[in-house]
């Protein structure tokens, strides 16, 4: 494709962290899809207490971990991307 060779086209495509961004987005989607998907596929799993006699359910912990994952993934991405672009 001749278009793709155009050097003027879009300099942003060369950002080194572009691939990293997609990988992180995929991981985030997987984590969230697992949260939503488990509710759809097996609601009983999600509403089970984390230990016998406890009130806190699997979904409560899963949900909090899901939120925590947004912080961890974003932090990792920013650290790596800053390092990549600091050349």
């Amino acid at each position: 494709m001749s278009v793709e060779r155009s050097p003027l086209h879009n300099p942003n495509d060369d950002l080194p962290q572009a691939r990293l961004g997609w990988i992180m987005a995929a991981i985030q989607t997987l984590i969230y899809a697992a949260f939503v998907g488990t509710f759809i596929a097996s609601p009983a799993t999600m509403t089970t207490p984390i230990a016998p006699g406890m009130a806190v359910t699997v979904a409560t912990v899963f949900g909090l971990l899901c939120i925590l994952s947004t912080m961890v993934l974003t932090g990792t991405y920013v650290l790596l991307a800053n390092r990549m672009t600091a050349r």
């Binding site: 997609w22 992180m24 987005a25 985030q28 947004t70 974003t74 991405y77 920013v78």
Partner: peptide, 10 residues
């Protein structure tokens, strides 16, 4: 909460 990370990644 999961929406904003997408904005930074992509």
């Amino acid at each position: 909460a999961t929406g904003l990370p997408f904005v930074v990644f992509l």
